[in-house]
């Protein structure tokens, strides 16, 4: 069960793609939904939004950046190795409909999550303008795939090594000024989603964001993933992971993501020493 049948390294090995056998999940999964993965019996349960599914082959694809112990363990697994547990599909699927002109904004590994949603929006007949951001050109992922499902594609890098030298929000502002945009989907680091939402709120443009807080079960049982949306507490695992970007309390989310910072550091250090 949950065998890795394809593995690719991206962004100079800092980001890894795994295609995993999970026929039941692949049959049901829709864009925007996530799975919870556990590398081995002592491992932590990690939520990741799926980057792709192939119902015929019975596989799902995840793309993750190696940041802590769990993603280090994931990254060490080879083709043929098996995940101890994969659970899903969890969360609500993205509501995809024809809106007109839409903007898809992606940052970091958020681009992987954004890809199936962008493809869905394009297939639904929308004109898709995509804006991708990364720290530098080497860390940018899925550019070709995103180009295929977009009518217009902008690239931004923090260091100017590729495309616009600056943030995705610079381009977004220009696009919003020139075009009649009906929907913005923003998926990436919390500050990116926060600033995108700030800009679109001023313009009154509907905005969807996908959140990835700390979770345990992913089925609504623990409440660890609670986020404040419009002043109300929501569970990202069952009420989300997508929410109205204008209503999310990003500062609270950023803080809650730091809850186990000291433990995570200790865990990663021990893991590196043992490797």
């Amino acid at each position: 069960m949950f065998k890795i049948i394809n593995r690719e390294e991206m962004a100079q090995g800092t980001i890894v793609l795994n295609e995993i056998e999970a026929p039941r999940i692949a049959r049901k999964a829709k864009p925007g939904q996530f799975v919870i993965l556990q590398a081995n019996e002592t491992g932590e349960r990690i939520p990741l939004t799926m980057a792709d599914v192939d119902p015929e082959k019975g596989t799902i694809t995840i793309i993750y950046m190696i940041v802590g112990k769990s993603t280090t363990l994931f990254g060490k697994m080879k083709v043929g190795d098996e995940y101890f547990a994969v659970i899903g599909p969890l969360g609500k699927a993205t509501h995809i409909e024809k809106k007109g002109k839409v903007v898809c904004v992606g940052g970091g590994t958020g681009i992987a999550v954004l890809h199936p949603i962008t493809r869905g929006l394009k297939e639904a007949g929308n004109e898709v303008i995509t804006i991708l951001g990364s720290r530098n050109k080497d860390l940018l992922i899925l550019e070709e795939k995103m180009a295929k499902v977009s009518d217009t594609l902008y690239i931004c890098t923090d260091d100017g090594s590729r495309g616009h030298h600056g943030f995705v929000t610079d381009i977004l502002k220009d696009v919003l000024a020139k075009e009649d945009i009906r929907l913005v989907v923003a998926i990436g680091p919390v500050p990116m989603m926060k600033f995108v939402s700030k800009i679109t709120k001023e313009k009154g443009v509907e905005t969807l964001v996908s959140l990835n807080p700390i979770m345990v079960d992913g089925t609504g049982m623990c409440g660890g993933c609670r986020v404040s949306v419009g002043g109300k507490t929501k569970f990202a695992c069952v009420d989300g992971p997508e929410f109205d970007g204008h209503e999310v309390d990003y500062d609270e989310l950023s803080k809650r993501l730091q809850a186990y910072q000291a433990d995570e550091k200790l865990s990663l250090e021990q893991c590196r020493q043992s490797l």
Binding site: T42, E44, R45, K69, V216, C222, E264, L266, S267, Q270
Partner: peptide
């Protein structure tokens, strides 16, 4: 759940804090 199922009382031997 963290403590019992995920055995966080044995962290960092188990990964869940």
């Amino acid at each position: 759940t963290r403590t019992n199922l995920m055995k966080a009382y044995r962290f960092p031997e188990y990964d869940t804090p």
